[in-house]
Design a protein around this nucleic acid. Sequence first.
DNA 1: CATGAATGAGAGTTCATTCAT
DNA 2: GATGAATGAACTCTCATTCAT
Lengths: 202, 202, 202, 202
Amino acid sequence: MGITQRRDRDRQEMRKLIVDTATQILVEEGIDQVSIRRIADRIEYSPGTIYLYFEDKDDILYEAHLEAFSAFLDAEMTVAAIPDPLERLQALGRVYVNFALSNQRMYDLMFLIPVPRIQNKEKYDWSVSIRTYQVLRTIVEECIAQGRIKPNHPDVVSMQVWATVHGLASLIIRQRIPMVDKELVSRMVDPVLNYAFDALKA
Amino acid sequence: MGITQRRDRDRQEMRKLIVDTATQILVEEGIDQVSIRRIADRIEYSPGTIYLYFEDKDDILYEAHLEAFSAFLDAEMTVAAIPDPLERLQALGRVYVNFALSNQRMYDLMFLIPVPRIQNKEKYDWSVSIRTYQVLRTIVEECIAQGRIKPNHPDVVSMQVWATVHGLASLIIRQRIPMVDKELVSRMVDPVLNYAFDALKA
Amino acid sequence: MGITQRRDRDRQEMRKLIVDTATQILVEEGIDQVSIRRIADRIEYSPGTIYLYFEDKDDILYEAHLEAFSAFLDAEMTVAAIPDPLERLQALGRVYVNFALSNQRMYDLMFLIPVPRIQNKEKYDWSVSIRTYQVLRTIVEECIAQGRIKPNHPDVVSMQVWATVHGLASLIIRQRIPMVDKELVSRMVDPVLNYAFDALKA
Amino acid sequence: MGITQRRDRDRQEMRKLIVDTATQILVEEGIDQVSIRRIADRIEYSPGTIYLYFEDKDDILYEAHLEAFSAFLDAEMTVAAIPDPLERLQALGRVYVNFALSNQRMYDLMFLIPVPRIQNKEKYDWSVSIRTYQVLRTIVEECIAQGRIKPNHPDVVSMQVWATVHGLASLIIRQRIPMVDKELVSRMVDPVLNYAFDALKA
DNA sequence: CATGAATGAGAGTTCATTCAT
DNA sequence: GATGAATGAACTCTCATTCAT
């Protein structure tokens, strides 16, 4: 391995350390608590050092949000083995909501706050996001192909499914459902998903 | 009109001025730009004056968020005249998404950021929120009663509908849909809503 | 009673209300919490009204501090009945320390913070302060006259006694005694006083 | 000298500069005038810089109060050479009062205001305070051992002495002695101390 | 590569006091 | 006599970012 390569590897490791630390703080204390200084403190480097690896704070959050998507992709994969596409679709829905509710601050970063770095269109990389979406879309296509759900353009169906699960999860996370009893809310999740998926059946 | 009444009215007007200004800044520049000082600057009062009318910043945002709900309630009412409950339900869905997309930063305040003042449970008033939800729920009940949609507990159905429209709107507002072409995204709204509501039909 | 007199009486009542309220806040929450606004809030008048009765905040604290002295004078009087002057002197010392420790925030106002209004020499009235001191001095004189304590100029002796009790009380109130165990400190009070008074005996 | 050491030294110098400046303002204008901004202004740094060296304002005052104790300890040491313990004790008393009256605002910080940082018990360091007290206590012990003063528990005697000198000094500093003539007050100091120490003699 | 000192701008909040009504 | 709206000047503290070393 040449010098350049080692440098590259070291650089990547440091970037990862920074991003992971940011994610850690995020998960433990919420996104408001993520600051350059706190990251620097935790990894025992100086704030200035951070800027040798990232252009700005937004960049770090961007990377963290990519990582989160990656973890989410793993979660999505757990349904791959289910043979029946409709069952797989339903399972994906449950996995989605479950991931969101179990990792609320991560989901916050992924879907609830304004996308980091979205302004710089030339720098924003949609590919992870697309891949995530493709998992859903592929299953939907299969369902349609096998006539298991009401037919339509696969993007339309995928969007509908996605909207439902994201909507459900985000209303819960952001505490917008006007039901005093918190437990009642969480007991609604399954029935709502069931109803939603039943409705899709051909 | 007595002195007390005039004072009361003046006070209410000032409160409204503050809240409206906060909303204005919010709409024009996003919620991050709303600060006590900027509000004070705009209305040409000193920062201290704000505190004569509101306990703290959170209180202002809370009020602004109530106002937004009120405007939203008005929007909801526009469907009241539609005789057929299923058509009314679909119309409500469209009104919902339309309101969200036309007033994105307002919707941000209403549904996407953490609720202002939610920590102070004793001070948070769910009533407006509940009323908004009731509009939906009532229509849903009627649809079920007339056998127009697949039957289930009205809260389950309402949540499903709400989740769908909120999910759709919020994914768009937060620019999470991985389709480069923005126009394409907005052209998806109607098909997705149509598909979603068709699926509900009994 | 003529109009002028009633006005005067009303005025005095209002002044008393203000001062008493200030004292109340002081005793309950410490001197830092005494603010014009909080006084006004408690008595349900507007801040402006306070200024009809007092020139400024300092004036209120000044009055409150006079009142405190008056209460203290009452406490001093409880020893008047003791026939033996030396015993009376010792009793006065105990009453002093006891008053200070039982009314710490009041004592704060009376002796630990800079005197309110002391800058305006022409307005500061020493008379209450002098009267308080005279109680001590008179007893001291009697002790000297009867040859019960080591003789000296009565002001010298009085100052020595006063310094001791004030010093003891204020070191305790301000938590300057470097003994970890708080209880130990309070158990020192009596022995120290005993030792001090024993030393004075002729 | 290595880099780390120089950095450490620089850091200490800056801390000292801040503390000294705080003390300066304190001495010149009183403790109320000490604010982060004023310190920053004087040393021509931005307010934020202060926070690179101290956690908060309380920390600065705490440090300043330690420094004051240190200076006071030096003053105490000037009596060490006096061979006779009783004379040494009397000299210490005079040094104490003299220090207090010559450095009134410093003494304010050391003994008259609420102790900085006392709430954070785990962070408050009593050691300087204890050392100061030990100087007194050691002399007292010697006096007792040699039968020069009336015997008692050394802490009781030390507290009595301390209370007397602190009481005297603080009544003068806080202008509580109701004698119009200021000079008269200062002419009382020596007689009172003499009387107090004479009384202690065995 | 890394430092860490420093900045400048800004945040929310509190206060004693004034004054037109 | 009383109001209470308003001020202006403070306050402590936090942050992302820069840059000479």
